[in-house]
Design a protein around this nucleic acid. Structure first.
Length: 547
DNA sequence: GCCGTTTTCGGCCCGACTGTTTTCAGTCG
């Protein structure tokens, strides 16, 4: 299955063409080809490429070239033409293709390090377009980018961990191997990826680990453990323990440090359950092992019965091709149905987000017809009419109350004016919470892991307002994980309902639900704390009460 | 580059903000 690898080739071509200032439509075509390949359900190398929407003559030829030679000439030429570091520089907010080209040509800046050095040495003062404000913004942006990229987002780390597990399973099919560390605990970002294997003969396993092509270099190795670095810089560690000590090792390798600290080291046990029994505690789920109150609760037999992904009955915040989604309502319905959901809501963007072809009142009503048509073919899946309506700068909604009142679900989200002062940003969102049509605030702090920090907002004040109106707050399960665990915990404690949504722009994103559930588990949530664990009947009753 | 067609080119993704211009280019969502 080479889908991801081929898709990456086209994404890279798109990135270089963007840098080169090529046509936005051409760039988009490459990105759509990449997306189509990544989304293709079977091995792309066996697919009938002509039948895949989004692939044309050019991308098909390049795909075949890659199957045959392992390379795409156009991409190799682009790589030769532009230093790879320029793509990194492009990631700095405020720097687009034009400015990156200018910095490269005039100041030979082709890496983040050189950009930082130039800023520190005040070398950009004379470059056209780089006034004092821009230079200042760049310094802040660079610092933030450093903080944001220091750790890997949970979804990426989980995907990598799974790849490593699959690769190991091929070499050692009978060995029990578990993911440990912060990935297992469901932390929103991850420093490194940990594994524990159960075996009396570590050497072959360590050899196999060292030989995985995913790794760039082996960093350390002893008799029972090995640490290696992936191509993207992330480090992965495997510890091999004999079966009789596997549980204790898994417990140690899962952590967290705060959870383990002050606990007398347990003797060798085969399972973690025995470890906790030995410590006179109930089994503590990995997501709660953060050194909060979990030991107290576990000893008092009063740990929560944490929500499971299987408790989720539907997805409330999803997109379709009516705005910037990649799948039709019918395709989304099919995917939801296959996941066994009882319902989902189509919540495309509203008109203020023009770039996504957001819906105005007219198109909202047009969409209702298509939803009704698709609904007729899915008797066991309720399709709700919804919208992800922009919260404008002043806190008003992008669509009139009259239109909003026709919809089953209104998700209110901020997609503009991220830099408002704390009080203004908070008041803006509270105004949306107080709009009786708004059922849910989408990604309430606006962060995107590894890309954008949250905007300044007083989350406890949002929770208070939501408590007054019965509005829910979202745990966005995609690359945002927003609300984050601490805020989700405060929301639950305030008695405000959370709603875990994938914000899926295509079927491929539906499995992200588990990351949102992990966040909810870290917040100590049971099923009853989350809106979309309700059965269809319960949900309809809840909606009825809100009207 | 892809797509669809009143078949082989023209449309596709637009509006707001920011900082720097001295009348708007570049970036972003």
């Amino acid at each position: 299955m080479q889908n991801a690898a081929l898709a990456r080739q086209f994404d890279q071509i798109a990135a270089y063409l963007e840098l080169a200032g090529d046509s936005i439509f051409k760039i988009r075509a490459y990105r759509e080809a990449a997306s189509a390949i990544a989304d293709y359900p079977g091995p792309i190398e066996d697919a009938d490429l002509k039948a895949i929407e989004g692939l044309g003559a050019a991308t098909m030829a390049k795909s075949r070239e890659w199957f045959k030679t392992g390379k795409i000439r156009v991409l190799e030429e682009l790589k030769a033409q532009y230093p790879a570091g320029l793509l990194e520089v492009m990631r700095v907010p405020g720097l687009g293709p034009k400015k990156v080209q200018l910095l490269w040509k005039e100041k030979d800046i082709d890496s983040l390090a050189k950009l930082q050095a130039a800023l520190d040495a005040n070398e950009l003062d004379k470059v056209a377009g780089f006034g004092p404000k821009t230079r200042d913004n760049l310094k802040t942006a660079l610092r933030r980018l450093g903080e944001l990229t220091a750790r890997t987002p949970l979804p990426d780390a989980t995907n990598t961990a799974t790849k490593i597990l699959i690769a190991l399973a091929q070499v050692a099919p009978d060995t029990h191997i578990e993911i440990a560390g912060s990935v297992r605990r469901g932390a929103d970002t991850v420093g490194n990826i940990n594994f524990v294997a159960s075996s009396d003969t570590p050497a072959p396993l360590l050899d196999a680990f060292a030989a995985l092509p995913l790794f760039e270099a082996v960093l350390t190795r002893d008799e029972t453990s090995i640490k290696a670095r992936l191509h993207d810089g992330v480090e992965a560690e495997l510890v091999v323990a004999p079966p009789s000590r596997f549980g204790t090792q898994l417990w140690f390798s899962t952590g967290s440090r705060a959870h383990i600290e002050g606990i007398e080291a347990p003797p060798a046990f085969a399972s973690e359950r025995e470890v906790y029994a030995h410590l006179n505690a109930d089994y503590i789920p990995a997501e709660l092992r953060e050194g909060r109150d979990e030991w107290q609760l576990a000893r008092a037999h009063s740990l929560p019965k944490l929500i499971e992904t299987s408790d989720i009955r539907g997805d409330i915040h999803t997109h379709s091709t009516w705005s910037d989604g990649v799948a039709s309502i019918r395709q989304m319905a099919q995917a939801m149905s296959e996941r066994g959901y009882a319902y989902f809501a189509v919540c495309d963007h509203s008109k203020a987000l023009a770039m996504t072809n957001g819906l105005d009142a007219f198109r909202v009503r047009e969409q209702a017809h298509e939803i009704a048509e698709v609904q007729a073919d899915f008797p066991h899946l309720k399709i709700f009419r919804g919208i992800e309506c922009d919260i404008m700068r002043d806190g008003s909604m992008d669509l009139d109350d009259e239109v909003l009142s026709e919809l089953d679900f209104v998700v209110g989200s901020v997609h503009s004016a991220f830099n408002l002062p704390l009080v203004e940003q908070t008041d803006r969102i509270i105004r949306a919470i107080r709009n009786p049509h708004v059922d849910l605030i989408g990604h309430p702090t606006g962060r995107v892991l590894g890309i954008r920090p949250p905007y300044d907002v007083d989350v406890p004040a949002l929770i208070e307002a939501a408590k007054e109106t019965g509005c829910c707050l979202e745990i966005n399960a995609s690359e945002r994980l927003d609300l984050k665990d601490d805020y989700a915990r405060a929301t639950r404690e305030a008695g405000v309902l959370l709603c875990i949504n994938t914000d899926a722009h295509g079927p491929r994103m539906l499995p992200n639900m588990s990351f949102g559930v992990a966040t909810a588990r870290r917040a100590g949530c049971e099923a009853k704390h989350v809106l979309n664990t309700k059965s269809l009947d319960e949900m309809l009753a809840w909606m009825g009460k809100r009207k």
